[in-house]
Amino acid sequence: MSKVLEVENLRVDIPVAGGVLHAVRGVSFSLEKGETLCIVGESGCGKSLTSLALMGLLPRAARRTADKLIFDGIDLQSASRRQMQTIRGDRLSMIFQEPMTSLNPAYTIGDQLMEAMLWHKRVSRAEARERAIFLLEKVGITGAAKRLGQYPHQLSGGLRQRVMIAMSLMCGPAVIIADEPTTALDVTIQAQILLLLSELQAEFGMGLVLITHDLGVVARIADRVLVMYAGQVVENGSARQVFGAPLHPYTRGLLRCMPIPGRTRPGERLGSIPGIVPSLIGEIRGCAFRDRCGHARSACADFDRLRHNETGHEWRCIMDEAESLSRADELEDV
């Protein structure tokens, strides 16, 4: 058991007109070698900013603080800009959502693949080229040597995302952070890319942090799941824990919103979560979900901590495990 990434009490504050936007409010997690951690939540929950904060790529105005931010034995908080540059793309790499815009149209696939490796490692062009071909074949691209000379516009979206994955693997990273890597892709290609990611992970043993809004993707690929709401982790557990016996009302609400072939009856009313996400500008006290929660009570206005049970399942709710489970079906009867 070795932790490659440890995050404790990560906060991201962004000054805006009318106050400070607390976009990420004390997120803690750790990632083991070879583990897949999924951060899931709806738009505005802070999941993308969490990933950018890890990479040190936050927008200039944003302020990052944390009690602990350790990657591969290096304290990211005290790392200089230079150190961050040598970490990024080498030991810690990132895959973005848009395969159309994250490759530079002016350079060939080969140049872009080899760039990071030539920058970070002492290798010759021939060695870099060899590794590029090796990885393109690994990600399932045929005629890899020929592809090196091609430009991004000559590839389809699915192929481009494969190239992005190959690129993220060039330097043998310890952790890959993937922000919605399959959202822009077609469903059949999404399945292929996810399969590829998990196979490569098993082979190279890197940690994977996957950020997505798609609970289906999360359920299938995650070892561990962080459900985020209003800048906080509201539930944290293994995929089976979170999807099998969700303990936070928000997680349960999200799952009830989804039509699931074989589970929901066609045409039946889907569940919904009433209300809207609270504004994150200014101080927020108590449970951020209480205005939308069917189980809310007055004490929720003061309750704001993660509970956990002996299996390592964490949830941020005033209800303890027994109560939460016993009332899991209540809302469905409304």
């Binding site: 469903v187 059949t188 999404q190 399945a191 292929q192 996810l194 399969l195 998990s198 798609d214 609970l215 289906g216 993707v217 999360v218 359920a219 299938r220 690929i221 995650a222 995929a239 089976r240 999807f243 099998g244 799952l255 989804m258 699931i260 072939p261 074989g262 589970r263």
Partner: peptide, 15 residues
């Protein structure tokens, strides 16, 4: 087969 339902036990489908 590529519909991803939130059922962790099914894993990632091979299309």
């Amino acid at each position: 087969s590529s519909v991803l339902t939130p059922e962790p036990e099914l894993g990632i489908p091979d299309t």
